[in-house]
Design a protein around this nucleic acid. Structure first.
Lengths: 266, 266
DNA sequence: ACACAATGTCTGAAATACCGGACAAACGAG
DNA sequence: CTCGTTTGTCCGGTATTTCAGACATTGTGT
């Protein structure tokens, strides 16, 4: 039986279960990979078929093609598949193709080893926030949110910075209404969020305390690209009881390093 | 099983003069990604079309689909595309989905920081050798071969270990004849190579001096999977003038760490 | 033991995704 | 400026691929 797969499949509910719609193989592939990323664990072909709303026979065909190309690989003995070695190589090529990204990774490593805290590189993916890379703090208190997991933007400090270029109307159109509801049920007032975005934009950093998680203090600083736009952020994820002097020290460090990585000032 | 992928990859490799054959979108996608990986730099759509032997109109269609999915992204002024953010996330998911791989990465980091040498994780991809991950030694002498670049197996120390389970006949069938020719024109006698493979298998490590490169001394140790098979190796890439005592020390360290990562003994 | 569900493979047939080719626009060289 | 090349887009026809369903096996639960 496929452990917790059913919940996710039904919760996903994105693809229409509607029959009779013929789709391109390429689109099936894209949906399949996204589904695997969302599920974050090997899946069986039958479950994949349900999750992406594709016929079983088609799904088998596609999965076999991707297995041959090593974009997927079998894991375990019982028909489970997950991302394959080729994906690792493609992803590595992406993250090293430009010197800028490599410098960012080095900074991430240095920040982590110097401070011992959890450091993340964050960005947007569609209208969600994602962690692009991270270095987890050692020790028992691992709060690490996984790389690639999509999170509602209003839950995050980085998200407030990444939307700094948008007008209030654009923000309204961009953020799905449900994304203002936190995991514990509290709801962020959109007006407050818009104010946060503006404040973060003005002061050049953003902090949140006990927002998405009761036990964490997050701080983010912007990395600006050649046009001055903020496409990525550096971010500390601290235990909420971190003393204020240390928080201030870490914030200064974070802002300095992020500024050093930026390709434009201001 | 679909026989497609290998043929397609080969076609992509040596350029494809073949015209008039209609192919599936999925296969085009696979060829496209392999072509990008081989080229190791952003490409224009027209060049991609030539490289994978696809009609321009089809290539545009596919590229646009992949751009929408962020599997590719535009880079540079305009017209150039390379791997996109989604690939990074898929690849990250691949390399972290199992605890074993994570332990390997940690070992890689530790070996690199403890010794200051270049460390690599190596494996096979089809009938070629590839670096799966690496930590480059600091300093001016960067000999780093890039992750994902395919290299003839006989050029490498790791390759001798990775083929340890094969009979001489299997080796003969597996290695393309041209792969015995080194970059500087020298040719390795197949008989010598087969003997090397056997020796490496027996002693549980492999070393090469000034083989693929006049200035490097390579040493590799096997990581065994649950069935005792060798699917990956740890590897040091040293300057060739590294003193023998230090080489011996590093070899012992490498073998010890590789053994600790193996899921079976012997 | 049974019934029931899921897996992996095949098949025929219809919908359509891919192809070849044409087109305007942009570029570069001489 | 003019010519030749490349880029990005569009279109209609047809060779292909996706789809639905059936099948033999294997797995699961009571």
């Amino acid at each position: 039986m496929s452990d917790g797969a059913k919940d996710l499949i039904e919760a996903a509910g994105t693809a229409a279960p509607q029959g009779g719609e013929r789709r391109r193989g390429i689109d099936r592939v894209i949906m399949l990979l996204e589904a695997l990323l969302k599920h974050r664990a090997p899946m069986r072909v039958g479950d994949i078929a349900k999750m992406i709303g594709a016929p079983r026979s088609t799904t088998y065909e596609i999965v076999n093609s991707l297995l041959d190309a090593e974009m997927l690989e079998n894991v375990g003995t019982e028909g489970y598949v997950y991302f394959g070695r080729s994906m690792h190589l493609f992803g590595w090529a992406y993250s090293h193709h430009n010197a800028h990204y490599r410098r960012i990774i080095e900074t991430l490593d240095r920040l982590a080893s110097e401070t011992g805290e959890t450091v993340q590189l964050c960005g947007l993916r569609g209208n969600k926030y994602v962690v692009l890379d991270c270095r987890d703090s050692p020790g028992p208190f691992r709060i690490s949110s996984d790389v690639g997991v999509e999170v509602p933007i209003p839950w995050t400090a980085s998200g407030r910075l990444l939307l700094g270029h948008m007008s209030e109307q654009e923000l309204r159109d961009f953020i799905p209404p449900g994304d203002y509801t936190l995991p514990d049920g509290r709801v962020i007032a959109p007006a407050d969020f818009f104010a946060d975005v503006a404040t973060s934009h003005r002061q050049g950093y953003s902090e949140t305390a006990a927002l998405a998680d009761r036990f964490t203090w997050c701080m983010a600083a912007p990395i600006r690209d050649g046009h001055g736009a903020i496409s990525k952020t550096l971010c500390f994820v601290l235990p909420i009881d971190t003393p204020e002097p240390r928080r201030n020290h870490l914030l200064d460090l974070l802002r300095e390093r992020a500024r050093a990585l930026s390709l434009t000032d201001s």
